[in-house]
Design a protein around this nucleic acid. Structure first.
Lengths: 347, 347
DNA sequence: TTGTACGCGTTATCAT
DNA sequence: ATGATAACGCGTACAA
């Protein structure tokens, strides 16, 4: 049996409640008794029992992290280094505030849902961070209905957006910027290859892309817009289709570096030289992006900061400072590398 | 206030203890009362309180995951997709056995140590999985001294190896195989670029490398063996030094794909063509390895399985089936891609 | 300022 | 087969 508060009390010749107060650093306790009790705690190697404490407190000082659904293989969500970085950001803030991290990575929608139920109803965590955002998500519904403290990394579906605290980049704006950048290089035939079309982030980036081209009176043929979940096959297939077109694009706007990696590879296999024959731009500036060949022009979205701010926000929510839902926008920046260059007019 | 077991008891007109037994599916309870109680539970939306349960049980059904130390930037450990994959493997098994995951990613040795103390002494977790292995690690010492159930992913330091359950590849053997493979291509001047030299995995791979060459009576000059922690600078610097040598190597044996990525890039910048002028082999077969240019010849170490087996092992330890420490070896396989080819004799 | 006594929600041990 | 009751370890009114 481990050392409890009672053991300390007995040894220090005080009441258990006094020990409890010393732990909480209650100002009503004399420095002298504090010293004494702390010494005994040290000597006996006392550590508060997490569960007893949580039970009495009705608070756990832990945060639940919900990862997006991820099949065991093939599907790129889990392989995407994005998540490792967000979690690092979350972890960093959480740690500074003495919060612990609970993580759940379900393989089906049902698993995720039941995990969240366990966390929330079972009172395992005080708040939750959702690392994905989908239309009509039961998890999201459940959390809002129970007004459980949570924040979302990404942008919530339109219809519930104003009731939710979320941390996101301005994907629409930066997509416009990025498209504008391609236009400024002289590109007019630009294709779009994005992740799953239900994902809000994909929608946002697509919207920025399309709107900018529309504003420049450039119409985008339907065959120029593609969605895929998979790194390799998706990239290869999309590229094949794109190149088979009568009027192939001169640039590709990709929504994720992992996807872009596959595309760069497919292009290479087809013998298409980047940036000479095809330009590529992408998002996230993942760690390998500067090491692709050629190095990728991409958008720095500050993943770490995304996580950090998310953690800060849940903790605020939990501790009820500033209760009203809000949106935190993390800045972005286009990092120009070698997959883009001014379009040469071929005569 | 949430619904408790007492509420259910009152509503179903039974005693709290009966409800508890229904939850545990105790065979001594009539099917009839079980049905009745379950119906009420359903209706009222009952969920067991995690902490109350853990307090009474002295078990938490959760596993702590300890990540290696990771500075916020620069250091490649955290950026390495390896960890995401192991965690996925752990998560998969843990989920199947209804275990939850607690994660800690400290930024200093002290943080990690105190996190582990909190987990263990605070009884937050029933077992721990260590995702790294170092010489003279206080965490390892603490866990063994308290005979707390834990397993290590990787190989424990020599002196404590027989007392510890661990999951690992046979890095020594596969390094020999890999070196042999390079020899069979005709390479004799092979350099080694590895991660931090304190890391057991680095040592193992280096040993396999050196032993094989020694067996073929090939001596390795000291300048051929390099260690680095950083992706980019490390790779660049090592390559510069290697190429400046009077007798530069014809092949490089790298211990990690992330490192190899940087090296491939550095080589490219120097205008050295791979595999024509330099061969490269590496380890881990990370998701991007087939997309590097050229695609990397590397060792598949089955990261997911490493995690899966680790989880299975802690659970076994926790539930006291097969208590004696053991070593589980996950198979490996050399994946030959395009960074290697038979050495052409230049006349 | 410190001690007493009860509650937090569950499980386990006795009874019945 | 079911019920009453005592832990599990800690926090906190309330009393002193």
């Amino acid at each position: 049996m481990a050392i409890t508060i009672k053991d300390i009390a007995r040894e220090a010749k005080v009441a258990p409640s006094t020990v409890s107060r010393v732990i909480a650093d209650n100002p009503k306790i004399t420095e002298k008794t504090k010293k004494k009790v702390r010494k005994v705690m040290e000597q006996m190697g006392y550590y508060p029992n997490f569960h007893a404490r949580n039970l009495a407190n009705r608070a756990t000082k832990s945060i639940g992290i919900v990862m997006p659904i991820s099949a065991r293989k093939g599907n790129n969500t889990f392989q995407n280094p994005f998540f490792q970085d967000v979690i690092k950001g979350i972890s960093s803030f959480a740690h500074s505030e003495d919060y612990s991290l609970y993580i759940t990575t379900g393989e089906t929608d049902e698993e995720i849902y039941s995990d969240v139920m366990k966390m929330v109803k079972g009172k395992r965590v005080d708040g939750i961070i959702l690392l994905y955002s989908r239309e009509s998500d039961p998890v999201l519904e459940f959390l809002t209905d129970n007004s459980f403290p949570f924040v979302l990394v990404g942008k919530p579906p339109e219809d519930v957006r104003k009731n939710i605290t979320y941390v996101d980049n301005d994907n629409y704006a930066v997509s416009r910027e990025l498209t504008q950048f391609l236009l400024s290089l002289g590109h007019e035939r630009i294709a779009f290859i994005g992740g799953h079309e239900k994902l809000i982030v994909t929608k946002n980036r697509l919207a920025g892309f399309l709107d900018t081209l529309a504003l420049s009176k450039i119409s985008v043929p339907a065959e120029y817009v593609k969605h895929t979940d998979f790194i390799m096959d998706g990239g290869k297939k999309s590229i094949s289709e794109l190149l088979a077109l009568k009027v192939p694009p001169t640039a590709i706007f990709v929504t994720d570096d992992v996807l872009a990696l596959g595309i760069l590879n497919a292009l290479h296999e087809k013998g298409i030289s980047v940036p000479d024959e095809m330009n590529v731009v992408s998002f996230n500036n993942l760690f390998f992006s500067e090491f692709t060949s050629p190095p990728l022009t991409t958008v720095e979205v500050n993943i770490y900061q995304l996580g950090y701010e998310a953690a800060r926000s849940v903790v605020e929510l939990i501790e009820e400072r500033g209760n009203s839902p809000k949106c935190i926008t993390v800045p972005t920046e286009i990092v120009v590398r070698k997959t883009t260059e001014p379009l040469m007019i071929k005569i």
